[in-house]
């Protein structure tokens, strides 16, 4: 207990770092992954505006990024990270690979969500003389909203866990705290506290996300 109190400043620091990483990476992933996911849906073979060749290229790119184990990606894109944030160590440097990984991850979830909607409302919209942009904004993204909130929840939870690996580039965060104190220094108490905190964080995100998703769902 004494030790935990000693470590408290570090613990608070680690939590803050986790918040910063997730708080920047997830919104960026949603901001960029949503259009990417919509694009994948719209231009898929059999989509509302098929364009098989460019779809194959983009889809392949998405798969390529997604097939990297996160730890490898973290290292592989170090030059890119330096280009973007000017450094390769620290929390800012950790945000880059997290975001790069989260964008295609979220995009696939968006694509999945939209393709599960019926095409009826899209067809009605075409009959009403809607533009493609209007259909996406007013119909697809509206009906997919509960699913999208669910996808944001899943992505956040996954990346809280991924963020534990960024200690490798000095990214910090609660997972890194657990590894440094709990694993390298055999401080079981520190490990336990970190685990409990992570558990609480994930539970809160999951609970809140589920609630929001249900509130947004008017289909039943």
């Amino acid at each position: 207990m004494q030790r935990i109190l000693e470590l408290q400043p570090e613990l608070v620091q680690a939590l803050l770092e986790t918040f910063v990483m997730i708080g920047v990476a997830i919104p960026l992933a949603v901001l960029l992954g949503t259009p990417l996911g919509v694009w994948l849906f719209v231009h898929a073979p059999g989509g509302i505006s098929p364009s098989p060749r460019s779809h194959a290229v983009v889809s392949g790119l998405v798969n390529a990024v997604r097939s990297f184990p996160f730890l490898i990606l973290l290292i592989a894109i170090i030059p890119f990270t330096r280009l973007i944030v000017g450094t390769t160590v620290g929390t800012a440097a950790a945000i880059v690979p997290l975001t790069v990984n989260a964008i295609p991850y979220f995009a696939r979830l968006v694509e999945q969500n939209i393709s599960q909607l019926g095409i009826g409302a899209v067809e009605a919209s075409r009959a009403m003389g809607a533009t493609r942009r209007q259909i996406i904004r007013n119909v697809l993204l509206v009906d997919a909203r509960p699913g999208l909130i669910g996808s944001i929840t899943i992505t956040t939870v996954s990346f809280i866990s991924y963020s534990a690996m960024v200690g490798l580039v000095g990214g910090g965060g609660i997972g890194d705290f657990a590894i440094r104190y709990g694993y390298y220094r055999y401080e079981t108490a520190a490990m336990l506290v970190a685990i409990v905190l992570m558990l609480a964080l994930v539970t809160i995100v999951q609970w809140g996300g589920g609630r929001l998703s249900r509130l947004a769902d008017k289909r039943v």
């Binding site: 409302a121 009605a124 009959a127 003389g129 007013n138 119909v139 509960p146 008017k218």
Partner: peptide
């Protein structure tokens, strides 16, 4: 815009 259409499945936006 001058031609309305309705469908068997109604095709409303549920949300």
């Amino acid at each position: 815009h001058h031609i309305g259409m309705i469908f068997q499945g109604f095709n409303l936006v549920n949300n």
